[in-house]
């Protein structure tokens, strides 16, 4: 009764075969009905709900030993939770990992789509906190399920229109709702709306996993994904009106870093691999002359941590 799993004795990719079959069936149904949230019997993973358990289960069900896995959180490979998830799969699936978007075959992400365009053969797995795009308008699952069934999305348009009435524009900056192949309204996970255009016509397979909410959904390659808008207020992307201070990119999504208490700040690419790649090619931004890396900002624990030599 009290026999424990020996370290290293996990089955490939941690989950038992029956669980993987259940997840795989859900993924295929998700692929067959793009944008529809398929219920699945999410398992209790050895990491907290809300920290990527859905994405981890989807990734576990898709991985093969030959994969090269990339894990990003906020666009960065080095944020603590990305590190933790990458380690989990190194340990339980023994797969190779990479930070290079172009080399990865499976990319698990939280809150970003990489800047480097994806290609056929790649799978992008999103961690999703609240998969239901209508949830904040109607908290009841029983009601929102009916709305999807009846394609009754008026409530969402009313919400967006109220934004316009109040602010003069649609005031949704992330998790911006989309309509998939003209049928299901879908939550693209809390990516900035800057990333929304990359959802559509993407050559890669995009899979979405919400563990706590027990839902999986999918976008097959080349699926048409339209961000909701109005004729007189068309969808617009947005980002901070700056260039990357490290690599000079004008077209990448930026993190803001506060550099002093006098209002000093700099803007750096949120996609650390993209930024590094540009700098390696000789591009430089306003502050790109020094040796600072965008990864320095991906995880700032380095600065405050007392170090291994004297933990206390």
């Amino acid at each position: 009764m009290t026999e424990h799993i020996e370290a290293g004795a996990y089955t490939f990719a941690y989950l038992d075969e029956q669980t993987k079959r259940m997840i795989r069936r859900a993924i295929l149904k998700g692929i067959a009905v793009p944008g529809y949230q398929v219920p699945f019997a999410s398992r209790e993973m050895p990491m907290p709900y809300g920290w990527g358990t859905g994405g981890v289960q989807v990734t576990a069900a898709c991985l093969v030993p030959e994969d090269r896995l990339k894990v990003i959180d906020q666009g960065a490979d080095d944020t603590t939770n990305a590190v933790s998830i990458r380690r989990f799969f190194q340990r339980t699936a023994g797969v190779a990992t990479t930070e290079a978007t172009t080399e990865a075959t499976v990319i698990q992400t939280r809150h970003r789509i990489p800047e480097t365009p994806l290609k056929a053969g790649q799978i992008l797995v999103y961690q999703v906190p609240i998969p239901e795009p209508l949830r904040f308008l109607e908290p009841r699952e029983t009601e929102t399920r009916k709305m999807h069934e009846l394609e009754e999305y008026g409530l969402m348009h009313v919400k967006l229109y109220e934004d316009i009435a109040r602010h003069g524009q649609i005031a949704t900056s992330y998790a911006y709702p989309v309509k998939v192949e003209g049928r299901y309204v879908m939550d693209p996970s809390p990516i900035p709306r800057f990333d929304n255009p990359k959802l559509s016509g993407n050559p890669a397979i995009q899979l979405f996993g919400a563990g706590r909410e027990q839902r999986i959904y999918a976008l097959p390659p080349w699926t048409e994904v339209v961000s909701l808008d109005f004729d007189d207020h068309p969808f617009q992307t947005s980002k901070a009106p700056h260039d990357c201070d490290l690599c000079g990119a004008q077209d990448s999504y930026l993190d803001e870093v506060i550099t002093d208490d006098q209002g000093g700040r700099m803007f750096v690419c949120s996609d650390t691999d993209f930024c590094e790649g540009r700098r390696a090619k000789g591009h430089a931004g306003r502050l790109g002359g020094d040796q600072k890396s965008s990864k320095t900002f991906a995880n700032s624990f380095e600065g405050i941590w007392p170090g291994t030599e004297g933990a206390r």
Partner: peptide, 13 residues
């Protein structure tokens, strides 16, 4: 089963 599923996933997707 992992390798086969990837083929089936690609086929269906």
């Amino acid at each position: 089963s992992a390798r086969a599923f990837r083929e089936i996933l690609e086929a269906m997707a």
